[in-house]
Write a protein that binds this DNA or RNA. Sequence first.
DNA 1: TAGATTGTTAATCGATTAACAATC
DNA 2: TAGATTGTTAATCGATTAACAATC
Lengths: 205, 205
Amino acid sequence: MPSKQIPDIVVGRLPVYLRALSHLAAEGIQVTSSHELGKRLGISAAQIRKDLSHFGEFGKQGTGYNVGYLRDQLKRILKVDREWPVVLIGVGDLGRALAHYGGFVDRGFRIVALFDNDSNKVGQRIGELEIMSMETLADVVRERSIQVAMIAVPAAHAQKVAEQCMAAGIKAILNYAPITLSLPDGTLVQHIDPVTHLQRMTHYL
Amino acid sequence: MPSKQIPDIVVGRLPVYLRALSHLAAEGIQVTSSHELGKRLGISAAQIRKDLSHFGEFGKQGTGYNVGYLRDQLKRILKVDREWPVVLIGVGDLGRALAHYGGFVDRGFRIVALFDNDSNKVGQRIGELEIMSMETLADVVRERSIQVAMIAVPAAHAQKVAEQCMAAGIKAILNYAPITLSLPDGTLVQHIDPVTHLQRMTHYL
DNA sequence: TAGATTGTTAATCGATTAACAATC
DNA sequence: TAGATTGTTAATCGATTAACAATC
């Protein structure tokens, strides 16, 4: 029986399960078990079963899980059984790399618009997309009902840009600027700062 | 009294505290409190005090914390009161962006060598660095006693490259490939996969 | 001093693990 | 059937919070 309240930490592990299942499927593996999956991911089998049990029953006793089926169920649960349009704000080196990255589309996301506040960049094309002025952000977001933004601007501009996003109707922000954004409680924000990841390891060296 | 066993989850928050303290210092703020810091970071004041108490006593009752002093203590604890040489493997769009990124140096890291298995890229320069052949990885790592690697190669090559890193003597890996690496227990690995971060949010949309 | 804030303890809360009946 | 593995419960483990004496 799926429980009503699902811990964030459980939801946070599902994308990792999904990624592993997609790889298994790509390898042609059709059935797996909580033990096999756990071994691959460095997670206990009990935890995987417990996590999944929040959302339903996906396996068979004695057999395990059908890889394709479980993958599809996780896509549904995470709502990536569709394609989310995403705006990318900040087209420096990192923004360009993200704009070129081909790994978003088959995992549920597509960058559909690029923005930068540098008038020299506005009008340039990257692939099929033209870099647009920040002044047009709100209109684009509203017209296309976009809910997800990636922010790849310098730290000094990130807070302001995040607020512009919220004002435009963006609901989820992936922030690449090395700064903690101050946004209303309940706002969906994820941070990617490579240096904090490196610093998490050096303590142990 | 600092306790002997410090939870990973506590160490994981210290880089975020450090980043905030560095920003406070840059703003010219000299003193802060666990409440102020917690408000900025969306973390409870009690948790910040508890986390810090694992490592010593850094504050003054009635006053709070000296920003510069606490920042320096966190740098020491995280061992980023020095400059770690880092190798970057994989010079595609993302690798190039990382190679150009100026934000590593003043936070404890410097990319000192670039590697790629594409012979067309080997010999090219990016800034002051020349892209080197993967065959020279082990020699460079050993000669310069490098312990940290960033991997920005396609998913299909990441596992093999990670093993080459381990064999060469690398102790900590920051992996940008969208795959969970299988490495010996206790190996220091951090993953950055923007799609998993996005997928953590869409469930709630 | 009076007010504020630390460091720490104890209580609470939540997450992980172990174990096992159910069953494929 | 015999062996294997699920989903779930209860026990354990660990992390967070609340509270407060100490003290700047």
